[in-house]
């Protein structure tokens, strides 16, 4: 629908604008729930809804008290601390194993490629509740249940499929003759990897890392089963908050998380364009 042709009939005109209107409503449906929590997080009252003062844009109706609560409440601070401690470690593990494997998988001759791929992707396919249940059984058998490393290993396993997918996607467009050219000019395989291959696949690795990070940072089901109170992460705290003592601090946290997602999204988009530019495609 690249514009309405001049010869369009009235019916077509009406449909054209109705359709656009419907689409606008659908976009609103997608975005409103996320936008609505932002003003509500500045609520001066302990309500989950707009007060009269807020609607009148009275400054007294707004306050930062829920943010203050987030920053001073030990429950939330512990949760934040745990999230910040778990997610980067899990990401590091997923990215280092995942990148190596993706390079291996994109070689031209890989025996049992189908089976291997199925196993490596499975953490993404299996419903989280089943992964959580299985890990709970197994990790309590080997004494990892309720430990920091238990949660980190579980999250790393959940994050690897994303790293594999993003890095393999970058490697698909990788020009193999560059490696041959480097070898031809006398570089050994290690030097070739760091000087030629690595700079070109870095965008894929970084976006894989972002996916792995967000997987761990947002994950709640597995940590709910595997973690003990001392591994309580932000999503877990939000989950209990929503279930038990509904407090608008959750909305303040949610707003902060939305801001983080916007930053992540911007980074990813930038990386995608950079990668396409480097590989000589016109950025879309």
């Amino acid at each position: 629908m690249a514009g309405l042709p001049p010869y369009a009939s009235t019916g077509q005109r009406v449909w054209y604008y109705t359709f656009r209107f419907i689409c606008a409503l659908l976009f609103l449906f997608l975005i409103i729930p996320i936008l609505v929590i932002i003003p509500l997080s500045f609520n001066a009252e302990d309500f989950f809804t707009f007060t009269k003062k807020m609607l009148a844009l009275d400054p007294e109706g707004y306050s930062l008290k829920h943010y203050r609560d987030f920053l001073t409440n030990t429950d939330w601070q512990n949760a934040l601390y745990n999230s910040v401690r778990i997610a980067p470690m899990a990401t590091l593990l997923s990215v280092s194993f995942g990148t190596l494997a993706a390079i291996g998988l994109s070689q031209s001759h890989v025996p049992f490629r189908g089976v291997i791929m199925a196993i490596l992707i499975s953490p993404m396919i299996v419903p989280l509740i089943i992964s959580a249940a299985g890990m709970y059984f197994f990790y309590s058998r080997i004494g990892l249940q309720g430990t920091y490393w238990g949660v980190v290993l579980a999250h790393a396993a959940l994050g690897t499929p994303f790293v594999i997918i993003t890095v393999t996607a970058t490697l698909v467009g990788f020009d193999k003759s560059l490696v041959r050219a480097a070898a031809n000019l006398g570089a050994d395989p290690v030097r070739t990897f760091f000087k030629v291959q690595m700079p070109l696949i870095v965008p894929g690795v970084i976006s894989g890392a972002l996916f792995a990070f967000i997987t761990s940072f947002d994950e709640v089901v597995v940590v709910l089963f595997l973690g003990s109170a001392s591994q309580k992460t932000l999503p877990w705290q939000m989950f209990t908050g929503l279930r038990e003592q509904i407090s608008p601090t959750i909305l303040a946290v949610a707003t902060i998380l939305v801001t983080i997602s916007i930053l992540l999204l911007t980074t990813l988009e930038y990386l995608r364009r950079r990668s396409e530019r480097l590989r000589g495609m016109t950025p879309q």
């Binding site: 194993f97 494997a101 291996g104 070689q107 890989v110 499975s122 953490p123 299985g134 059984f137």
Partner: peptide
């Protein structure tokens, strides 16, 4: 060489993920 590159992750996923599913 391809298998050597994949092996660490494969082992990792089998131990941390496949084994729990089999246990279940």
């Amino acid at each position: 060489r391809a298998l050597m590159l994949i092996a660490p992750l494969l082992l990792f996923v089998v131990l941390t993920f496949i084994a729990p599913i089999v246990d279940m």
